[in-house]
Amino acid sequence: MSFVIVRDVIKEYETAHALRGVSLEVEKRQWLNMVGPSGSGKSTLLNIIGGLDSPSSGSVTIDSTGIDRLSEDDMARFRREKIGFIFQQSHLIPYLNAVENVMLAQYFHSMSDEKEAMEALARVGLSHRIYHRPSQLSGGEQQRVCIARALINSPSLLLADEPTGNLDRENTRVMLELLRKLHSEEHFTIILVTHDPFVSKWGQRIITMEDGRIIQDEPVHV
């Protein structure tokens, strides 16, 4: 059975259809990239898979759990157990330093452990920036803090929404190499949204969305 199963998902807003019956299966440990123009529905689909948004109809199953049937609090608990998020704008709590931002995810999961959080930051190459606030870090460094935070609770699914959207090519490459390394070591599943053709080539599979539908699903040819 696939690790992520999306069945006939429709997402309607008052004036628009964001998703028009999307079905998708993602295998465990797979790295899937979603590409498409703005407004194609890729971020909406990612949010629905991550339980941050709910579908108007259809179902989403992750690791055999039907998440569309979970209450908001159960979804929050499921999310902290199974899912890690990386956003385009490196959403970090501005008044907490790097290690505290990582520890925040631990605190919501169970108990915060500073040593473990420092190791996570060391894994993303930030052992020298542990006590720096987000405003004292570069965009690339902030995204690496986000990776450390997303992975601190050992999730089985990493969802990334335009994680390199604000980075230059060099920082994008550094971050993707880091993700590849961590993916090969920790074996989590990645679903990554991007509109950058350079980024889309780093995964194992690529789907293309347009107007709320998947119009293409193919393996990545390196």
Partner: peptide
């Protein structure tokens, strides 16, 4: 608001 949204996305339930 962003902060609270982020906390929820990171796994904070109502009790937290």
């Amino acid at each position: 608001i962003d902060e609270i949204g982020l906390m929820k996305a990171t796994g904070a339930d109502s009790s937290k």
